[in-house]
């Protein structure tokens, strides 16, 4: 393992793994406890529109993905809450429209679209340093927001109706949470790709949730899970020359299965103890 650290691209990859883990540990926890996994999936796919826009304008697609995913988050949130079509229909619409725009933008871009595949399926080994800087900034925004609004997000996730009655502006907070989801998606896109982002936003927390019922611990355990498992996935992909995004997701899935089994063993033990 030490040998691979001498290359800049592997150092960047490890740094990217850390930054990704902070975002998905914090935001993923709220996604899981607020049960907004599919909303997050919808925003993720809609973010592809932003990637396409980057190609069309000739700028870094990660940068254009930021406003695009933020707008998608607000669109899903507002349509889902206000229009009478229901949240799942709103997710479906924003999901498909975002992707369609992305395909359209890429189609309009003259010439060939290089690296498009890496935005869809991720490529942690080719994350450039400029993207690392963007990820650091977004991580800081996520950390600071959650530090300030920890108890509000917890209350909102537990009982939105009651929070509203106590005078908390729940709709604004909910939209803000969706914006954090959008930012975390941008952090993750480079590493696992649009199609696999949802795995990192759900699996580390789902594993941790089996072993703690404390929110702070859940966040910390999720981050640790994410760091350890993405690095293992990264290492396996380096070792066997596998696509990194897929390797990371499959490592997450296998560890989830093992953890569910271990949890069952613990429950059975305590029942018979």
């Amino acid at each position: 393992m030490a040998g691979i650290l001498q290359y800049e691209f592997t150092r960047n990859a490890l740094l990217a793994a850390m930054l990704v883990s902070i975002a998905c540990g914090i935001v993923g926890t709220f996604i899981v406890i607020k049960k907004i996994v599919f909303i997050s999936g919808g925003i993720t796919h809609a973010a592809f529109g932003g990637i396409g826009l980057g190609y069309l304008l000739g700028v870094n697609p990660v940068l254009t993905a930021i406003p695009f995913s933020l707008l998608s988050a607000l669109a899903v949130g507002i349509i889902g809450k206000r229009a009478k079509i229901g949240e799942d229909a709103a997710i479906g619409i924003v999901w498909a429209v975002g992707m369609a725009l992305g395909i359209l933008f890429v189609g309009l871009t003259p010439g060939y679209a290089p690296d498009l595949f890496s935005y869809l399926f991720g490529s942690i080994l080719t994350v450039p340093f400029t993207d690392i800087i963007i990820m650091i900034v977004l991580d800081i925004i996520i950390i600071v927001t959650v530090l300030f609004l920890y108890k509000e997000f917890q209350a909102l996730s537990f009982d939105e109706e009651f929070s509203e009655i106590t005078g908390v502006p729940t709709e604004t907070l909910y939209l803000l949470l969706l914006c954090l989801v959008a930012l975390s998606i941008v952090v993750l896109i480079r590493v696992v790709g649009i199609i696999l982002v949802i795995a990192l936003l759900t699996i580390p927390t789902t594993i941790a949730k089996q072993f703690t019922n404390r929110l702070k611990r859940l966040i910390i355990y999720s981050i640790i899970n994410a760091v350890v498992l993405t690095v293992i996935g990264l290492w396996l992909s380096y070792l066997f020359d596998l696509p990194s995004g897929a390797a990371i997701v499959l490592v997450l899935a296998v560890v989830f299965l093992i953890s569910a089994f271990v949890k069952r063993l613990i429950v059975v033990r305590t029942l018979h103890a």
Binding site: Q154, D159, K209, N213
Partner: peptide, 9 residues
């Protein structure tokens, strides 16, 4: 009201 019994709170 119903909620997730595993909810971390």
């Amino acid at each position: 009201f119903t909620f997730d019994f595993d909810f971390p709170i």
